[in-house]
Computed example of a mutant assay.
Amino acid sequence: MLKFSKKLLYAIEAVVDIAYNSGGEPVQIREVTSRQGVPQRYLEQVMQRLVKAGILKGIRGPRGGYLLARERAKITVGDIARVAMEVGDGEESGLPSDVATGPIGQAVIRPLWTEFQEQILVMMDEITVEELTTRAFRNGVPSEVYNRITYTI
């Protein structure tokens, strides 16, 4: 189930970074880690899963990196969250294993937590990467797109 782990937050941040900074060119993982301060070890595994899930496309070679595999408006935060959950730490409910283990915990609290998580995923499915890149632009986050543009006369 959904757990707001570092991997989940870093995965969302990485996909939005790629969408915001690619300008049609592959973005290398080291660029993402440098811009966002995200440890590369957290990203490598989840990036591979995002490629397998059809959210990102991996480009090989010296100028390789990652691009979105679909349009920004067709990728939701929920899509990314589901992939990051697969890479999780095996904690099924998102609650520590020693919490809510009594009769009320098992019959009431854990099912309630599952309902909360399902509602959060529904909300995440309503937010697209396009919306998040628009928010980044409105908030004045610098984009590498402008540095990649070359003018030829």
Rank of each mutant, 00 (worst) to 15 (best):
Ala100Gly: 06
Ala100Ile: 03
Arg63Ser: 15
Gln45Cys: 07
Met85Gln: 08
Ile59Pro: 08
Glu25Arg: 12
Val15Lys: 15
Gly88His: 02
Leu9Trp: 07
Ser93Phe: 12
Lys74Arg: 13
Pro26Gly: 03
Val122Tyr: 01
Val87Leu: 03
Arg135His: 15
Ile149Trp: 11
Val129Lys: 06
Gly37Trp: 06
Ser143Gln: 08
Ile75Cys: 09
Val32Cys: 12
Ala84Arg: 09
Glu115Gln: 05
Pro39Trp: 05
Arg41Gln: 12
Lys52Thr: 04
Gly78Pro: 12
Glu118Val: 06
Val87Tyr: 05
Glu131Gly: 10
Arg110Gly: 02
Leu50Gln: 02
Lys52Glu: 08
Asp17Val: 02
Lys7Gly: 04
Glu130Cys: 13
Val15Ala: 08
Pro26His: 00
Val141His: 07
Leu121Val: 04
Arg110Val: 10
Lys7His: 07
Gly24Pro: 10
Ala81Leu: 13
Thr150Pro: 11
Phe116Thr: 00
Ile104Leu: 11
Val15Phe: 12
Val129Thr: 11
Leu95Arg: 01
Trp113Asp: 05
Thr133Ser: 14
Ser34Asn: 13
Tyr66Ile: 11
Gly105Cys: 03
Ala19Cys: 06
Arg30Asn: 08
Ala69Val: 13
Lys57Pro: 04
Val77Lys: 09
Val32Trp: 01
Gln117His: 00
Gln119Asn: 00
Gly65Arg: 07
Gly54Trp: 02
Asn21Cys: 02
Thr152Glu: 04
Tyr20Ala: 02
Phe116Tyr: 00
Ile12Asp: 06
Ile127Lys: 15
Trp113Pro: 03
Ile153Thr: 09
Glu115Asn: 08
Pro26Met: 00
Met1Gln: 15
Asp17Cys: 04
Pro142Ala: 02
Glu131Ile: 10
Gln36Trp: 08
Asp17Lys: 01
Thr76Leu: 06
Met85Ser: 12
Thr152Asp: 10
Glu31Arg: 02
Glu126Ser: 09
Glu44Trp: 05
Tyr151Thr: 13
Trp113Thr: 08
Glu44Ser: 14
Ala73Gly: 12
Glu144Arg: 10
Gly102Gln: 06
Arg60Cys: 05
Phe137Val: 11
Leu112Gly: 13
Val15Gly: 12
Lys3Gly: 15
Gln28His: 09
Val141Gly: 05
Ile104His: 12
Tyr66Phe: 13
Ala14Val: 07
Arg110Gln: 07
Gly37Arg: 05
Asn147Pro: 08
Ser22Ile: 11
Tyr66Cys: 14
Ala73Leu: 12
Glu144Ile: 03
Pro26Thr: 00
Gln48Ala: 14
Arg63Cys: 14
Ser93Thr: 14
Ile120Tyr: 03
Val46Asp: 13
Ala11Thr: 09
Ile120Ser: 01
Lys7Ser: 08
Val87Glu: 02
Gln45Phe: 12
Arg135Cys: 15
Trp113Ile: 09
Tyr146Thr: 07
Arg30Met: 09
Gln119Gly: 00
Glu92Gly: 07
Val77Leu: 15
Met123Leu: 12
